[in-house]
Structure formats: C-alpha cells, structure tokens
Nucleic acid binder design. Structure first.
Lengths: 175, 175
DNA sequence: TTTCGCATGTAAACAGTTACATGATTAC
DNA sequence: GTAATCATGTAACTGTTTACATGCGAAA
C-alpha cells in the first residue's frame, strides 16, 4: 500500500487535510498499522488531486496558512475499492528492540534489563492510551490491543528468567 | 539498524556467506524481526569488508560460483557492540491486511471472510513451523510465538462476530 | 521436464524519512 | 519564555526492492 492509498482511505472516512491525515495515523487506531510523515502525505495529496481521486477546497483561515481540505470523489472511491481488493502484501515488521535482544548475550545484563523495562513501560503506556480511546474500527482496535497485551505479558513474565539466563551464561564464560 | 549491522550480527554468530545470511533472516528466528534481500545484503558485505569489520575468504566450489564466507573481526565485534548499545529505534510495522480490515465495510463480506481465513491459516502455518524449530534465542523466539498465537486466537475468536457486524451494517445501508 | 536450491552480484526504479523553510496562537 | 499545536510544502538523502545477468545439480 502506498501513501496515496493510505491517504485515500482516511479521506474516504471524511474530508480531511494533510495535517489531519497525519494525526489519524498517530491517534485514530491506525498508529499500530502504518506510519507516515508529511514528506510523503503532502506529495501524495497533490498526486491524488491531479488524478481526480480527490478534490481540494482551500479553507481560508485568519492568521494561519490556508487549510486545504480534501474530499474523495466517485473515481477515488473506485480506486480505493480496487486497491483494497488486491491481495494484501505481507506484513512488514522491523524491530531494533528484538534484534538487540537477539544479541543480548553481548551486552551488560543491566543494560538489557533497562531496555526490557523501557519496552514494558512503552507497551503499558500505549495500552492505556488505546484502552481509553476506542478506535473507529473495533475489530482492528481489538486486535492491536490483544497483540500488545500479549507482548507486554510475555516480557513481564519472562524478564527475570531471561536476565538470570544471561548472567549464568556470563559466569560460564568468566570461569 | 541498517543492513550492515544486521549482517554483522548474523556473522558474529558464526562465519556465513551472503546466501546464508539471507536464509538466517528467513528461517533462524530472525524472520519475524527483520526482512532483507540480496540487493541490500551483498552491498552491505562489500562495505563491511572495506571497513575491516569482516574478512572474506573465497571458498572455491566445483561447478558452482565461489562461496564467499565472511568472518567477523575484532573491530567488527566492537562495531556491533556499539550499534547494539545505541537506543533502539521504534518498531516499524506496516500491515496491508490490517489496513484492509480497517476498511472492510467497503468490501463484500465473503471477500473479507476469505482474507480472514487466509490470514488465520498463515498464522497457523507459521506457528507450526516456529514450534518445530526452536530458534537460536529462546527469549526472542518465545516472544514471536506468543504474539503470533495471540493474533491467531484473536482472529479465530472474533472472525464470526466481525462478519456478522459487517452484514448487519450492510443490511442497514440497503434498507 | 520443470521447479527448487545453491550462489553472487549490479543497476535502475521506487519509496520513504529528515531537514529545511515559515510563522502565528495557546497553554503551561 | 518555552513548548506544543496548528498548517503546508520542498529537496536532498537514504534505503529498499525488483529486475536483470548467469548457471549447475538434484529432486519431484
């Protein structure tokens, strides 16, 4: 899915500006699905407008840059449906944290402990946020919650065991 | 983490060729952490060699292209340690599947059902593979298992509810 | 006989992030 | 006064994927 399709999807839920699309990717339950930046959103909106998939109406604002609100067209709805009907590409996941844990035996155990604690705190912070705001798609929102919860639970319940294991391996090397 | 660091990590576990590094990212419990392709691995190995972080020994093979086996140097171990000590970047996740589910209300329910079933089958296939082969890091491997299991369980237990919800919403629109 | 696995590598195309550029308002 | 929010956009840089190029051996 390219940024154009992502923007088209958000706009299909209601007219929005580039700024609001970015916010949707940070807040509206889309944050654990995809990431984007202004550098890809604004050019995508320009391209969508040229292709006639959205129309742009500039809203003049006092003492602010004009807010450009994009509305989906019929052609846009068709293009979105086509994009959504294609077989979805494989999920792409990349985690520096997990990669680092894979090589935890090379690091000082107290550094690993810090990374684990930070990660647990991150999950718990995110879970709290997600639990308070039900996203606009309960199924997807629920899946995000379920996965994050299991990740947090796993880390909490295996943290000590893992650290113990690292220390004992360390000792063996020292001997 | 750039591809150079990823390769350095794999080589630190034992001398390997570019081909074997790719396999490690597909099989050895690294597959749910990072993805790479030959197009990024081979140039990374060339760069690592130039920087003196690995050394390359060509193994002549009969009726095959020479196999180039890379071994990590002391400088390489130092560089890996430095890279692993840096604060890990945020996880990056992108899922066409979840994005499509977010807009499932636009699709025919039987198409959504097919996508859900395919996804459940994908998780179960992966889980079976992962359960049979314990990766070389039990902690990371266990985390992958836990997360995949919770995703599969969520999909299985909410599949029908979600489809029912889509159909009933459809009916309301039709009326 | 066709596909899969082994085995390396380059170049072009594509995509995405970051930094830059600008600037007022509001809440702390 | 300082940070955050609102608001848009470009350009350079970085990184990744895909296609191309080559080719044998073994298994299905």
């Amino acid at each position: 899915m390219d940024t154009k399709t992502l923007c088209l999807g958000v706009i299909s839920l209601g007219a929005a500006s580039g700024y609001e699309i970015k916010k949707a990717f940070e807040e509206d339950g889309l944050n654990h699905i995809y990431h984007t930046s202004y550098g890809s959103i604004y050019p995508a909106l320009t391209a969508l407008t040229k292709e006639g998939l959205v129309v742009c109406s500039a809203m003049a604002q006092e003492k602010r840059p004009d807010k450009k609100v994009y509305t989906i067209t019929e052609a846009g709805r068709g293009a979105l449906l086509t994009a959504l009907s294609a077989p979805p590409a494989e999920d792409k996941f990349r985690s520096d944290f997990l990669f680092t844990m894979f090589f935890a035996h090379l690091l000082p155990p107290q550094h690993v402990a810090k990374l684990l604690d930070e990660r647990i705190a991150w999950y718990e912070g995110n879970l709290a946020k997600m639990e308070s705001s039900q996203g606009c798609n309960a199924f997807v929102h629920g899946m995000g919650l379920a996965v994050y919860r299991s990740a947090a639970d796993y880390l909490k319940s295996h943290r000590q065991e893992f650290l113990d294991h690292l220390s004992s391996a360390d000792k063996l090397v020292a001997e």
